[in-house]
Design a protein around this nucleic acid. Structure first.
Lengths: 152, 152
DNA sequence: TTACATGCAAAATATTTGCGTAGGA
DNA sequence: TCCTACGCAAATATTTTGCATGTAA
C-alpha cells in the first residue's frame, strides 16, 4: 500500500484536452478548456466555488453556473470525479484512468487529504458486493483520522 | 460476512430514551423524545424532511428547525449517525452501539440500501490508516452496485 | 445556419439562525 | 425562577434553471 501519486496528464498535444473532449463527443469551448485545465493542474480537491475563483483569475468573464454545468458534464463523461468529504460541498478531481480508483485519508485536525490505493481493499470490496448479490459499479471510501504523534 | 441486522433498542423502561438523554446530559423534552422514538423505530435512513413528515403525523406542532437542531445534537451525543449516500441530503440512523460500525450497499437501480458488516474490512481499514501514520477516528464506506441477475 | 453553450439573475434545495415565547429542571 | 428549547420566519449556503445572446461545428 502506498500513498497515491496522481497521474499527471499532458494537457496539450495529440492526447490533450481537446482530444479528450472530441473523444467523449463534447463540444470544445473556451470555458470548458479553461475549467478542465485549471482542475487538471490542481493537486487538491477544489469545490465549485474554489474552482470558480481559480478560473476567474484567468478569465473573469466565466460564471459559476458554467462551472457547475461543466462539472456535471465532465462527471457524466468520466473526465472528473465528484467527491464528498462530509462538509456539505461537492469537491472535484480529475479522473486520470478507469482503474485508478484511489481513496482518501482525511486529517480531521488539519483538513489535509492524502490519496491512497490498496489493491487488497479493492479486491475485498468487490468480493463483499458479490457476496451480497451485486456487481460493484462504484464505491466511496473515506477514512477520517488524526496523525499518530511520534514518541519523544 | 453477513447482512447486518440493526439492533433494536427497548425505547421504554430503565434503559430507554429518557435514560439515554440523561446519561448524555441532554434535557428531556417532548419534541426530542418523539423525534428519537420515530427515528429509532424507522428501519431505513430518513433525511430531515422525511423524518419531519413522520414526526408531524404524530405531533403536527413540531417544526423542521427542531428536527435539524435535534439531529445535530444527537449526532454530537453519539445517539444518531449521519450518512451521505451522495444525493445531496444528509440521512440519519440510530447509533445502536460504539462497535456497531456497519456499511451500506446501495442498489443504484432501485435505491434499496442493505446494511452489512465485515470484520476483515474493519481490520484492513485500521491497518491502512496506521500505515499512513494515522489513528482511525471514523470512516465512511458506501458500495454502489446492481443486482446480479440470476441465470435462467 | 443551427443547435448547443454561456452569462446573468432568479429559483430551488438543504440547512442554519435570530428572536420572542414556552417549558423543563 | 431561570436557563434552555421551541416555533416561526428570515437568512445562508449550495446548486440548478429560464431566458436572451453568443459561438462552435
Amino acid at each position: 500500500m502506498a500513498v497515491h501519486e496522481r497521474e499527471q496528464i499532458n494537457l496539450d498535444g495529440p492526447n490533450g484536452i481537446d482530444a479528450l473532449f472530441s473523444k467523449r463527443g463534447l463540444r470544445i469551448t473556451a470555458p470548458r478548456r479553461l475549467i478542465a485545465r485549471v482542475l487538471f493542474e490542481s493537486g487538491d480537491h477544489p469545490d465549485a466555488e474554489e474552482l470558480y475563483e481559480r478560473v476567474k483569475e484567468i478569465d473573469s468573464s466565466i460564471s459559476i453556473a458554467t462551472v457547475y454545468r461543466t462539472m456535471k458534464l465532465f462527471e457524466e463523461a468520466s473526465i472528473v470525479v465528484k467527491r464528498d468529504f462530509g462538509d456539505g460541498r461537492a469537491r472535484y478531481e480529475p479522473q486520470t484512468g478507469p482503474q485508478d480508483h484511489h481513496h482518501h485519508m482525511i486529517d480531521i485536525e488539519t483538513g489535509e487529504v492524502l490519496e491512497f490505493y490498496h489493491q487488497g481493499l479493492e479486491d475485498l470490496k468487490k468480493q463483499i458486493a458479490k457476496d451480497l448479490g451485486f456487481d460493484l459499479v462504484d464505491h466511496h471510501l473515506e477514512l477520517f483520522g488524526v496523525r499518530i504523534k511520534p514518541k519523544n
